[in-house]
Simulated assay, not measured.
Amino acid sequence: MVALRLRLDQLEKPQSSPLPGMSVSFPPLFKASWDILAQQAAHDDAFFPPGSLCRDVADRIVDNGVWLAWKPRRHDAKTVIPLKDAELQHNKWRDRERILAALDFDEDEGDAQQVLASIRKLATPVLREKLRQFIKSVDYDKDTQSLEKIQNLVIRLARTLPWEDLMTKLSELDEDQSFSEQLSSVQKTLIPNLLLLRQALQQGGELDLTQWSHVLDSLQVPRAVLLENLRDLAQLGGALAARYIEEQDQ
């Protein structure tokens, strides 16, 4: 009934803002009803109350024809363990002295390789520090949840992680261990878009923030859920990036 009321309001007043002061805690039976409700929740974070089943399943909806369905939340051990807070606290410059010492080299190829190896070893703590700052900012911005701030977070996450390499790593893990089952539907949509955004940033192109607004709106989840997915994606992507760097060093 709430979905029908919202849809009627959309038809009668297509240019008006979504109806305020309403909330839904339990998901409907039909996917079409969910789509209407989720569109409202994407603009009104209180529409799916915290702790409600609607809020819990918002990023796990799967295609099931006319019926609403979602993936169960997995509680088993993960293929790649996300970076924990303690791991994100590594000293950013722990390899600084070793690199400075290695820079004092002649034209010997072995010394040059030593410099490159030292720089690669520095990459992991630097990456972790960037991710720590990113996750801290996500937690700090939980109460603000403006679309502009979320766009800025997405841009920062695109810049922070090597998504080209991570896409390759994700494909390898998915072939062997069904890694994609760890990802929410929101994260599966975000990852290829983060890759495209990173490539655009590297090429110096102008960002189409209007297009990104449409991408974020199409996710149809409360902004608090979107922020949680960005934070979790940063932790999981960071663990993948750390593993990738370690494999490159071997």
Results as ranks from 00 to 15, higher is better:
178 S>F: 07
213 S>K: 10
46 A>I: 14
204 G>M: 11
175 E>N: 09
180 S>M: 06
54 C>P: 08
184 S>F: 04
104 D>F: 07
97 E>S: 04
18 P>L: 12
183 L>E: 05
134 F>M: 04
124 T>M: 00
186 V>Y: 02
27 P>T: 10
239 A>L: 05
18 P>F: 06
82 P>H: 12
201 L>P: 00
196 L>C: 06
35 D>Q: 12
190 L>S: 04
239 A>Y: 03
143 D>A: 12
1 M>A: 13
223 R>E: 01
143 D>T: 12
231 R>I: 00
43 H>N: 14
101 A>T: 09
207 L>H: 01
195 L>A: 02
8 L>Y: 10
193 N>Q: 15
39 Q>N: 08
216 L>D: 00
48 F>M: 07
81 I>R: 15
15 Q>R: 12
209 L>M: 13
99 I>A: 00
162 P>M: 05
53 L>H: 07
248 Q>D: 09
177 Q>R: 14
250 Q>I: 15
82 P>S: 14
195 L>S: 01
72 P>L: 11
233 L>H: 08
126 V>N: 03
140 Y>W: 13
198 R>I: 01
59 D>R: 12
112 A>V: 02
50 P>C: 08
179 F>S: 05
137 S>H: 10
40 Q>H: 13
155 I>R: 14
245 I>T: 04
80 V>M: 07
236 L>P: 02
76 D>F: 06
128 R>A: 00
82 P>G: 06
214 H>A: 08
212 W>N: 02
117 A>T: 03
233 L>E: 03
48 F>R: 12
141 D>N: 14
170 L>Q: 07
9 D>S: 15
19 L>Q: 13
168 T>C: 01
7 R>Q: 14
132 R>W: 01
189 T>S: 11
143 D>W: 11
207 L>P: 01
227 L>T: 01
173 L>W: 03
151 Q>V: 02
116 L>T: 03
21 G>H: 12
250 Q>G: 10
19 L>I: 15
211 Q>M: 11
162 P>L: 04
99 I>G: 00
175 E>T: 10
183 L>N: 01
146 S>W: 11
228 E>H: 13
161 L>F: 00
135 I>M: 05
136 K>I: 04
16 S>F: 09
250 Q>V: 15
68 L>C: 05
126 V>W: 03
16 S>Y: 12
241 A>Q: 14
156 R>W: 04
139 D>Y: 09
11 L>C: 12
55 R>Y: 03
148 E>Y: 09
115 V>H: 02
179 F>T: 05
50 P>L: 09
113 Q>M: 07
118 S>W: 07
162 P>V: 05
91 N>L: 13
62 V>H: 05
248 Q>I: 13
25 S>P: 01
101 A>V: 07
91 N>K: 15
